[in-house]
Amino acid sequence: MSVLGQLEGFYDAVPRAGARAEDHGPLTLFVRDGAGWPFYARPTLGHPGPVGAADVARVRARQRELGVPEAFEWVDETAPTLRAAAEEAGLAVHTHPLMVLDPAAAEPAPHASSVLSEGLSVRILASADPALPTALTVPHLAFADPGTHIGTAGTNSLTALVPLHADPVAVERATTRIDAGLTVFAAAVDGTTALCAGQYNPVGEVCEIVGIGTLPAARRRGLAYAVTATLVEDALAHGLRTVFLSAGDEDVARIYARLGFRRVGTALIAEPFV
């Protein structure tokens, strides 16, 4: 099976662990059961036909009916008609480099010296790790201020948002997934505060590294590199053979390239214009 074929199987399998799948012909809508990050619609695995604007419009109507985000995610190379259909249906389409770890470069480089010299701990988080609540929260701050520039949101902002993004239900869900081996979290931790965090989710021998986010005020210190390297090391140690991710932009992709990731396609996300 090709690499993109492996990724398509992964993309279809992962949401099914925490969502129900609604069949909408060439599109499948995943709807989360309970609290947590909302899911999206994506091309139906194995569907032979093209996707049209009317297909996108029908799923958008269903998403509005359910009160979930009108979001679509897919790989351009495996669903080449969907971009034009999404744009015709009135959605904004965002592009992200899709990258797979090169097996020939599968030994991650050492953690950035700046991380170690500052006394930070870069580690895989156990379910009882006191840094888990901030690790669940810091990506929300990072994604609210995307890019690699140094921002203003610091630890005070992080602490204020922990009750919103790491309430007891969210922490319990995360700890259950950790203990079940469904998700692996890593973080760069100062004391008990995660300044950068991310995770990977394994399915068979494939895993996706997702949610790598650095506290905006803590950027440009090598934290995202170190957290990603830690996740890669752990994934390889557990026998995962295909490790992939989607970079936020070309600048971020260059960071991942230093770890041995190579571009294999383009991940697309469609959502309403803001």
Results as ranks from 00 to 15, higher is better:
P108W: 03
T228R: 06
E87S: 14
A194V: 08
V206G: 09
A21H: 02
L98S: 01
G151E: 05
P272Q: 08
L268V: 09
G211T: 10
E208V: 14
V210Y: 06
R263N: 09
V68R: 13
T176K: 11
G18D: 08
P130T: 09
E107N: 07
A54T: 11
V243K: 05
R241V: 15
D251Y: 00
L4Q: 07
A270D: 04
G198F: 01
G181K: 02
H165E: 05
S117M: 09
H94F: 14
V169D: 12
E73S: 14
A229H: 10
V274M: 04
T192C: 03
P110Q: 06
G211C: 10
R173C: 01
L116V: 12
E205W: 00
P130Q: 07
L158P: 12
G147S: 04
F273C: 08
R254W: 00
A109N: 10
S246K: 09
A229T: 11
M99L: 11
A226Q: 05
L141C: 15
F185D: 03
F143K: 09
G9M: 08
A224S: 15
A188H: 04
Y225V: 09
R221I: 10
S2C: 04
D179Q: 04
M99S: 07
Y11C: 14
T228S: 13
L136Q: 01
S127H: 15
A187L: 05
S121C: 11
T78A: 02
I178E: 09
